[in-house]
């Protein structure tokens, strides 16, 4: 047995199988999107307060402002990804029946995508129309 053999771990057997496919990808993405959402949510809350009592024209003018639109799109983008992988963890924790698990995981992807696309299309339409 050569000496270098000792430095080999069973990692190569795990690569490409099970969680070996992506490892800590989702864990790390949850942190990155979390930090982004934390900062952007400050903008979002201030915006919500500012829009209180505004009429339609004023709301459209605010949302149509490119700076606001960019930050809102960024906030919604990272939030949707954050919630998608977060809900995936919850489903993986609690839904044990295989078929139901696959269906709920799929529904999670569809729901998150739909919410994200709807918000993005609306924001882009508003900011391009303004």
């Amino acid at each position: 047995m050569s000496k270098s053999f000792r430095f080999q771990t069973s990692l190569k057997h795990a690569r490409g199988f099970g969680s070996g496919k992506s490892g800590t990808t989702h864990f790390w993405q949850q942190r990155v999107t979390g930090v982004a959402a934390l900062l952007l949510s400050l903008v979002y809350v201030v915006l919500l307060v500012k829009l209180q009592g505004d009429d339609y024209a004023a709301v459209m003018a605010t949302l149509g402002n490119p700076f606001v639109a960019v930050l809102m799109l960024a906030f919604l983008g990272v939030s949707v990804w954050h919630m998608k992988i977060g809900m995936q963890v919850i489903i993986e924790d609690y839904v044990n029946q295989p078929l139901l698990r696959v269906l709920t995981l799929m529904a999670n992807s569809f729901f998150s995508a739909l919410v994200g696309i709807a918000s993005a299309v609306a924001l882009i339409k508003i900011t391009f129309g303004a």
Partner: peptide, 29 residues
Amino acid sequence: RITGGFLYVGTVFVAVWLVAAASGPEWFA
């Protein structure tokens, strides 16, 4: 976890509000 779940559902309120705003004053009202 529960607040995360609330926010998950809550994004519907944001999306509906934005889509309504983009659809015109009647929808927004």
